[in-house]
């Protein structure tokens, strides 16, 4: 089977056609296309069926999509029944979504962003920016290569390959580390903004922060922090306009 590198490159745009009907489906089909190309000469009918299946509904974390692309392409070459491949796709959605969200969005990204914020406010500016981009993309590229290779090697047995992989252990470790780094970043960033303005005025900002946390927790999704902020800014301007 050829087209591995092309498929890996296309995985960077796997969310390109994201929509509320097929979600990642068409993006997965786009990434799988180079892998399925050889099937056209071996079994044209099977190739057409495989292309149709590859672009059907699918959703998972984009950085782990390679596992699904690789596993289903391998299963197509191995001649697995179409219904079984469709079931594999369905079965992969939730675990790949949950693992990826936990590892990347709730773990690695806040960990690296928190570290970047700390470094930036401590004066390491461009290095913080470059360091963040380098570390995240290194992890992301390595995960992408691993995911596609693992999927291609495991085929229908991709579930057990994921269970035995580093991903679950890493997810358990990265979450607390992210909590620690973000926790450390909050007071440092707060001081970075408020110290030059002066602490008496800063108490006002801290009071706004405390009110914001309480109010947005109380109202939940109906009053997000962005809405709360826009409301507070407009109220302040109106107040200053009425009472100059």
């Amino acid at each position: 089977m050829n087209g591995g590198w092309q498929a890996w490159l296309r995985l960077f745009a796997v969310q390109g056609t994201w929509n509320y009907e097929r979600m990642l489906g068409v993006g997965i089909g786009y990434a799988a296309e180079p892998l399925l190309e050889d099937l056209k000469t071996v079994d044209p009918v099977r190739h057409t069926e495989a292309v149709v299946r590859s672009a059907e509904f699918f959703n998972c974390h984009p950085n782990l999509a390679g596992l699904a692309v690789g596993a289903t392409a391998r299963a197509e070459y191995d001649g697995a029944p179409g219904a079984q491949i469709a079931r594999l796709r369905t079965a992969l959605c939730s675990p790949l979504g949950a693992l990826g969200d936990q590892f990347f969005w709730a773990g690695l990204v806040p960990l690296l962003v928190g570290g970047t914020l700390i470094a930036a406010v401590l004066g390491v500016r461009w290095w913080a920016v470059f360091g963040f981009l380098a570390l995240y993309n290194l992890a992301r590229v390595a995960t992408g290569v691993w995911a596609l290779r693992t999927g291609l090697d495991a085929g229908m047995r991709v579930g057990s390959a994921i269970a035995q992989s580093w991903l679950s252990r890493a997810t358990e470790r990265v979450g607390p580390a992210a909590g620690f780094v973000v926790g450390a970043a909050i007071p440092l960033v707060g001081a970075w903004y408020l110290e030059p303005i002066g602490w008496p005025a800063a108490f006002g900002a801290v009071a706004v922060a405390a009110t914001g946390v309480a109010v947005t927790r109380w109202f939940g999704a109906s009053l997000t922090t962005v809405r709360f902020t826009l409301l507070a800014l407009v109220l302040l301007v109106l107040f200053r306009w009425v009472l100059p």
């Binding site: 709730a106 806040p110 992210a178 909590g179 973000v182 926790g183 970043a185 909050i186 960033v189 707060g190 903004y193 408020l194 303005i197 005025a201 800063a202 006002g204 900002a205 801290v206 009071a207 706004v208 922060a209 405390a210 009110t211 914001g212 946390v213 947005t216 927790r217 922090t225 962005v226 709360f228 902020t229 507070a232 800014l233 302040l236 301007v237 200053r240 100059p244």
Partner: peptide
């Protein structure tokens, strides 16, 4: 005027801190 502009900055910083604290606690 300068006091309104400074007030907006303080409100924006306070709200941004509330956003990150709220998000961190939820997470």
């Amino acid at each position: 005027d300068r006091s309104t502009a400074l007030g907006l900055t303080l409100v924006a910083v306070g709200c941004a801190l509330s956003a990150v604290i709220g998000g961190a606690l939820r997470g």
